[in-house]
């Protein structure tokens, strides 16, 4: 019995010790966290904001104003008739043109960014770039690019290149390069080394090694990632317009500024539809690519 009770005393001693440490840690953690949280809510004026007496009512009113005043009997009439679809989408040709411009921006930026990312990925893959300093520099640069939000970069580039799609394309291309460069280099490092050795053994140069040893292995994965990025870039291109970097975003901004909330909804639906179509197309291509990769 003395043995078993000694087990209990030993445990209780150990428990007190552990508990004291744990409680201290938990207490400190909780204190710090709640202090930060409190300050955060205070700083973000979450509770002190003057949001009117009836915030939900205001959102409701806002949403209500987004719903266009369509009339059933005049639905298919021309744009001068109040309540028709054409009246709601009163500037449709311009929006479609800007929408197409947005798509073009996304595609061009994805292509440019993918090419840039490809070059960068070879420079920072451990199995393809022997010089550590180069790998380090390229990696850090890509990381820095990924940290910078697109919209901030777009603001700077709009100042340099002027308002228009050029600034938007460069912004998206740079940020695409940042993310694809990292993903591509991860793919590169998974390349089967036996094939590379085989190439080296048969006396192939660096370029030939990449062309025949690496590219065939990684191409399907590359394309798949680039297509996913294309989907993201389309939403990105639509948003960039808000700061004047081309595309349909400028119209969204205008609609908000002139408090044409029904127009805002109209353009938003257009963008969502556009993204939806590109998503479907890109998914179809990706599925075919994956199927291709398996059958090989």
């Amino acid at each position: 019995m003395s043995e078993t009770s000694s087990a209990v005393t030993a445990f209780e001693a150990l428990r007190r010790q552990t508990l004291r440490r744990q409680r201290l840690q938990t207490l400190a953690g909780l204190l710090i966290f709640s202090a930060i949280l409190l300050i955060s809510f205070q700083r973000s004026q979450f509770f002190s904001s003057d949001i009117g007496d009836d915030p939900l009512g205001r959102i409701g009113e806002f949403l209500n104003r987004m719903i266009p005043d369509l009339k059933g009997e005049a639905l298919l009439a021309d744009s001068r008739t109040e309540g028709s679809l054409a009246w709601w989408y009163y500037d449709l040709p311009r929006w479609l043109r800007l929408g197409w411009q947005t798509v073009e921006m996304a595609i061009v930026a994805t292509v440019l960014g993918a090419v840039g990312g490809l070059l960068a990925s070879f420079l920072c893959a451990r199995n393809l770039m022997p010089i550590a300093a180069v790998r380090f520099t390229v990696r850090r640069t890509l990381e820095a690019i990924r940290t910078l939000p697109d919209l901030v970069l777009a603001l700077i580039l709009v100042a340099a290149f002027g308002a228009g799609p050029l600034a938007g394309v460069i912004t998206l291309a740079v940020s695409t390069m940042g993310s694809l460069g990292k993903l591509f280099s991860e793919i590169n490092e998974e390349v089967d080394p036996r094939q590379l050795e085989g190439m080296r053994a048969s006396g192939a140069g660096y370029a030939a090694m990449i062309r025949y040893g690496v590219v065939p292995q990684v191409l399907p994965n590359y394309t798949s990632y680039a297509l996913i990025r294309l989907e993201g870039n389309l939403a990105g291109a639509a948003a960039l317009g808000i700061v004047g970097a081309g595309g349909i975003g400028i119209e969204l901004q205008r609609a908000i500024t002139y408090t044409e909330f029904d127009t805002y909804l109209a353009i938003l639906l257009l963008i969502v539809g556009m993204i939806f179509l590109i998503d479907i197309a890109s998914e179809a291509i990706r599925h075919r690519l994956i199927g291709l990769g398996e059958s090989r």
Partner: peptide
């Protein structure tokens, strides 16, 4: 995306972090 929400909410609640 959050940007679209922000555009709506900023115009509903006015400028500010809320």
């Amino acid at each position: 995306p959050s940007l679209v929400w922000a555009l709506i909410l900023v115009s509903a609640f006015g400028l500010g972090p809320f």
